[in-house]
Design a protein around this nucleic acid. Sequence first.
DNA 1: ACAAACATACAAACAAAGATGTATAGATGT
DNA 2: ACATCTATACATCTTTGTTTGTATGTTTGT
Lengths: 203, 203
Amino acid sequence: MARRTKAEAAATREALIDAAEEMFMEHGVARTSLEQIARHAGMTRGAVYWHFKNKADLFHAMLDRVHMPFQNLFDEVEGPTVDNCPLEAIRLACIKGFARAEQPRNKRVHFIMMYRCEFFSDIDPQAMQEEISKDILTVLLKYFQLAAENKQLTSLSPEAATELFYATLSGLFTHWLRQSDNYSLETQGSAMIGNLLHLLRSA
Amino acid sequence: MARRTKAEAAATREALIDAAEEMFMEHGVARTSLEQIARHAGMTRGAVYWHFKNKADLFHAMLDRVHMPFQNLFDEVEGPTVDNCPLEAIRLACIKGFARAEQPRNKRVHFIMMYRCEFFSDIDPQAMQEEISKDILTVLLKYFQLAAENKQLTSLSPEAATELFYATLSGLFTHWLRQSDNYSLETQGSAMIGNLLHLLRSA
DNA sequence: ACAAACATACAAACAAAGATGTATAGATGT
DNA sequence: ACATCTATACATCTTTGTTTGTATGTTTGT
């Protein structure tokens, strides 16, 4: 083989990431070699080292395809209708997030992060999760504070409500990830956070 | 060196597991070699291979030192006083569990399971967590059903309450594990599950 | 428009480093 | 004397990073 067109090369790159995803999923990150990834994509390590610096770089590229900050979910939701309904905004944003998470690629990558990857070189799942956690917590706090100002929150402080809600959300998420397939975030997850928000809403 | 007394040999074994814990914690399971573990314990791989079949076997030995089924926490709590107070029993059992989890060795091992280990040979963190999850869910369901029968539960079904509570509990736990040290399960965690149980209690 | 010249996209081969498992030697309690 | 515990030595396998080779796009000069 030899040089391909730009489009073909880009396709190769994507195919390599696809292959990496599948192999990471099946055998774990540490235990899949670049050789295996290349073969699974129908290439050799030459292609891998052309497109990526090393395994960590390939891993980052895989993450980049699915990254989505939490605030975006609210931006998609927030219309004039929910502006004075922060708790409802939270609910709808979560449902949006669930729909995204259920997309196969998103689920696979998050699963890899959670159960198929331990830290190496500059990859540190703990730190990454901590970053996501902070992001979600600050955004949630904003909306729970708004709810408290509007007297829509029970006796709990906005801070306590935020931490409680976040714990539930992340616990739900990891539990869903762990299940094989017989668990739908969009239905059962939405129900759960609906229940929690109901409990948090002042009567 | 050579043969030690039985007690010294047992101490060697423990020291090897201690060393494994520390190295796993620092460098991840996949990226620490048996050589590193042995050296860190002041031994050579000969000692490791005498006491353990291989890395997976050593890993299992490490887990065995901290294993504790969820029901045990209730057994320690349950007196005649809380027999008709299932929600209070849940609260106290959780607090017991938090105290256990805060012990350095327990925290280290759980941290390793969560953030420093991906599956290899017969080690599968996902499956292990799923098993623990099932254990906790069945025990919790028992007590929430009791609470429902005693009319101590809000409108939520026992099943919904169980799933909600479990999600919160596991989310709280992983979030606590991830924090460096500035987060106390016994104080902040107890407060959170206290809040949740308060919301779940019928007025 | 059409070569020459260059850059790109891979494959293939190579060298070095680690890790694993095993086999064996040696020392010491019992 | 013998079983137990640990160190040492060895052979093998895997992975990684690098280098080199090469065919083909792509661009540029004329």
